[in-house]
Design a protein around this nucleic acid. Structure first.
Ligand SMILES: [Mn+2]
Ligand SMILES: [Mn+2]
Ligand SMILES: [Zn+2]
Ligand SMILES: [Zn+2]
Lengths: 133, 133
DNA sequence: CCCTTAATGAGAATGATCCTCATGTTCAGA
DNA sequence: TCTGAACATGAGGATCATTCTCATTAAGGG
């Protein structure tokens, strides 16, 4: 848990409030530097980790395994529809998936079931750009 | 696409036929060595990559981002219920998820929708072990 | 057989992420 | 406001999975 508020942590929080695309730790670090915030990469990683543990940010993995972070508008469990090109994301619900996952897990004798369900695609804006070129 | 059959590729294919848990490339390399198969780690990576591209093996990511491979019994699209402890996996269907994903994606103006939905938990066998200790 | 060319593998390179530890900062309490 | 103990930072190094390089090996069609 975060115990002390620092300049760096405030900067990360502010950035996450402005950016609503899924971004890697390194991208966020670049953005912070671009905004004039002095902050070390290790601190960005640590802060994101802490926020993730606290459920403040959602983490998902790009196809290459890189971790992507985003502060969603709601803290409750939900799923995402993410643009593979630009990272923009929509929060969506998975109607019935939660109950279904529990049932399937139990039917196979598994306990402590967790599930992931993520959608990705190309957003309208990125599709338009591609069409131009 | 694979153009030539080699001792190494045969060994990987045989191993994948025997192991039905999700395993990392390095674990598979260890297993091959243990079976007396001389094979380089790079070759294991390359072979798994090729098999994955061909849809012969499924790839999913552990929580730490490491890639895990498994040759499933069916080549058609499906989902998994994986034990986080031992890697054993059950193949499951996601009734209605495919259509739902398409619909949600389209509703948000996204194209080329792909979805992932994976369940994980602790299998009965691993739960029993944990209970002993 | 015999080449052409794909495949292999040892070792180096890459890249994300974590760790170390000396130094800087926060903030509860005086 | 003043301190100091504990927490936080960051530069640089360590890890570790995965990929690349390139000299060497070996499929397999003809
Ligand atoms: Mn869900
Ligand atoms: Mn599906
Ligand atoms: Zn986009
Ligand atoms: Zn298990």
């Amino acid at each position: 848990m975060i115990q002390r508020m620092t300049r760096q942590r405030s900067a990360v929080a502010e950035l996450l409030a402005d950016v609503d695309d899924f971004r890697s730790a390194q991208q966020l670090h670049e953005l912070l530097r671009g905004r004039g915030n002095e902050i070390g990469l290790a601190t960005v990683y640590r802060t994101l980790q802490t926020l993730a543990d606290a459920g403040e940010v959602d983490v998902l993995r790009a196809e290459d395994g890189e971790a992507l972070y985003r502060r969603c508008s709601r803290r409750e469990h939900h799923h995402h529809l993410v643009c593979r090109r630009c990272g923009t994301a929509e929060e969506i619900d998975g109607p019935g998936v939660e109950a279904w996952a529990e049932a399937v897990g139990a039917a196979h004798g598994f306990s402590d079931i967790v599930h992931t369900m993520e959608l990705s695609g190309i957003c309208a804006s990125c599709a338009a750009e591609a069409g131009d070129a």
